[in-house]
Design a protein around this nucleic acid. Structure first.
Lengths: 225, 225
DNA sequence: GTAGATTTGACAGGACCGTGACACCGGCGG
DNA sequence: CCGCCGGTGTCACGGTCCTGTCAAATCTAC
């Protein structure tokens, strides 16, 4: 069974997580500060890391960066407090594989753990998807078109990613706002349109007649598939 | 529409939630103590539970534990008072799906309800159906005829879907207006005819002699089957 | 502060929906 | 068998709502 290292400065959170993960059959290790967490990660080489971001001293992304710098490719799921948008992005940029917002449901966490562990290990850093002559690298949050990099802003990337991960499905603007923008932000639905517009300009051969990023009139948007 | 069970010992909270959720189109059940809440959950099998954690007698997480012990996998959103850190962990142990901290915004609660209900549950709904050389994809709200996509407007799709889901049954225009158009709108019954016409033109081999979308003279329409 | 990202508002064009007009059909009573 | 009459098929028009697009305003990170 996979071994999971938990690093969080709140002891109750660590205990709760350990109990549950063990109950699910995982082996667990834990630390309540960043430095010991990093040491454990290096010495024990677990299969997965659950890292709290906000920790005194060494933060979750400090650990993540150190690991990557040493060439270790252990999958990482970040635990972020609600609304730490910046942290979430930073974590992903530094090579986290996923993030969960506190307070989170156990089932959601387990689903994400399974999803991350399911991925083929060594190929992980190449995780990407492609359509037409476009290639998207999830890890680096980068996009390439015909081999040339296309710069994407945060929202553009998140939106594109969400659409692609639900390809074939019609998604309403409201749902996009909830899932991509988040609970506590409530921009206009027109905002979605503007971002769709920019994605089309960057990735569609003929932006006025999109082939991938499609409109479902009166319903929302849909990525072809 | 999904049915939601609310369990909270504060009657005003229950009433407020019921009013708002009903306004949003959900069906609601409620109880003001844990034991009756559990009984309702077991007998009514709602689609979602909103559980207050702090209740005299049987608490929210007691209910949750009992349900899980009986193998019921109904999604649960916990309502927690601010700062009940311990409760959060306990809830996590017992498999709640999400948390909302009181006092909460209605909008946030609704967003979380939608998010939880959206998750792929144990029951996967029909992905698509077919008749003749026509294939309908529900997720993408798309239709294909002989492998070629046929564009459908929202009303056309909704109408077709309703007819097919009640295949073999004669449905009056008034019922179609209620079910497909919605109770708020009052178009003429002739509007239905027009949409039927368009569906026939798109899907019948010989639109003047329909084989699938049939007329029940003086009664309504019926999808063959 | 500046540069870049995000959001908003305005506007035009287009898609969609609903309606009315008229032709046609089916059933009914004579 | 015939004619009546309400129900239905069909079409095209107009209004309404939705979306694409842009520029300006606001926000954010540095």
């Amino acid at each position: 069974m996979p071994r999971i290292l938990i690093v969080d400065d709140e002891p109750e959170m660590v205990r709760g997580l350990e109990d549950n993960l063990r109950f699910e059959g995982y082996q667990t290790l834990s630390a309540t500060d960043g430095r010991r967490g990093l040491a454990l990660a290096l010495s024990e080489a677990p299969d997965l890391l659950l890292l709290d971001i906000m920790m005194p001293g060494m933060s979750g992304w400090d650990i993540c960066r150190e690991l990557r710098a040493k060439g270790l490719d252990i999958p990482v799921i970040m635990l972020t407090a609600r609304g730490e948008e910046a942290d979430r992005v930073q974590g992903l940029e530094l090579g986290a594989d996923d993030y969960v917002t506190k307070p989170f449901g156990l089932r959601e966490l387990l689903a994400r753990i399974r999803a991350v562990l399911r991925r083929p290990g060594p190929r992980q850093k190449f995780e990407e998807f492609a359509f037409g002559d476009v290639r998207i690298r999830l890890r680096g949050r980068q996009a390439f078109r015909a081999g040339r990099e296309v710069r994407l802003t945060r929202k553009e990337f998140d939106l594109l990613r969400y659409l692609v991960e639900h390809r074939g499905e019609v998604i309403t603007r409201d749902r996009l706002l909830e899932e991509v923008w988040g609970y506590e932000q409530f921009p206009t639905t027109r905002t979605v349109d503007t971002h769709i517009l920019r994605l089309r300009q960057k990735f569609e051969r003929d932006p006025e007649h999109p082939v991938y990023i499609l409109t479902a009139h009166g319903q929302g948007y849909r990525f072809a598939g």
